[in-house]
Amino acid sequence: MKVQTKFHGDIELAAEEIYHFESGLPGFLEEKQFGLLTLDDTPFFVLQSTRTREIAFIVTNPFDVFPDYEVKLTDEVLELLQIEKEQDVLTFVILTISDPFNQSTANLQAPVIINGSKKLGKQFIMSGSDYRTKHKLFEPRIEQGAK
């Protein structure tokens, strides 16, 4: 499938590179198919709509940035995504990129869950958790010698 992308120009995606989001994403309910594209030499990916060039989200693996992050999937999500084993689960969080970059944030309240083997995805809103939609990716560094 030929896809016009926001960051990679026109590319070709094979059927096995496309993830189906039955319910779309919140705010983008008509967007049902996405490709997961790498951003070279970064820990980030682009979740790119196959339908609309401008709909592309910068995402990352939250466990690389927030090692204590926990996602407890509901039975409904496990069933919807046909998840049978933990190895099938890919977890990403959507980033809000800021200028300056060190002010960028991650939405830990609503991770994107993908069943890598079945090519199914869903943004899972963890209601009742302490996670917010804007967790800073980079905590301010304490200057050496500062008190």
Rank of each mutant, 00 (worst) to 15 (best):
Y131N: 03
E79Y: 01
Y69D: 12
L137S: 11
T42M: 08
V112S: 01
A146G: 00
R53C: 04
P140Y: 08
F66K: 05
K119M: 11
V77K: 04
V77H: 12
R53I: 00
E30H: 11
S129M: 01
S98V: 00
D99H: 10
E31W: 01
L29G: 05
L13T: 03
Q87T: 14
V112M: 05
V46D: 08
F66W: 08
D40K: 13
T60E: 05
Q109R: 14
A146T: 08
Q123V: 05
V46E: 09
K32E: 09
E30M: 06
G116H: 11
T96N: 14
S117D: 12
F101L: 15
A110Q: 11
I94V: 15
R141N: 06
D130P: 04
F66H: 12
F57P: 02
D40S: 15
E70R: 15
Q82E: 15
T91S: 11
L78C: 09
K134W: 03
K2W: 02
E16Y: 04
Q87F: 00
Q123K: 03
G27S: 03
V93I: 12
V89E: 06
Y131P: 03
F66V: 08
P26S: 09
T133S: 14
K119P: 07
L81P: 04
V46Y: 09
S49Q: 08
I55R: 07
Y69H: 11
Q109C: 09
I142D: 01
A56I: 01
I94P: 09
E143C: 00
G9T: 11
I97P: 03
E139Y: 05
S104A: 11
T105H: 07
F101W: 10
V89F: 06
K118R: 15
P140H: 06
G145N: 05
F66N: 05
I113A: 00
E84N: 15
E139T: 09
E30Q: 14
P140V: 09
V93H: 04
E17D: 15
F101M: 14
L39E: 02
L81N: 02
N107L: 03
N115A: 06
T105N: 07
I113P: 05
F7N: 10
V59E: 00
F7K: 06
K6Q: 13
A15I: 05
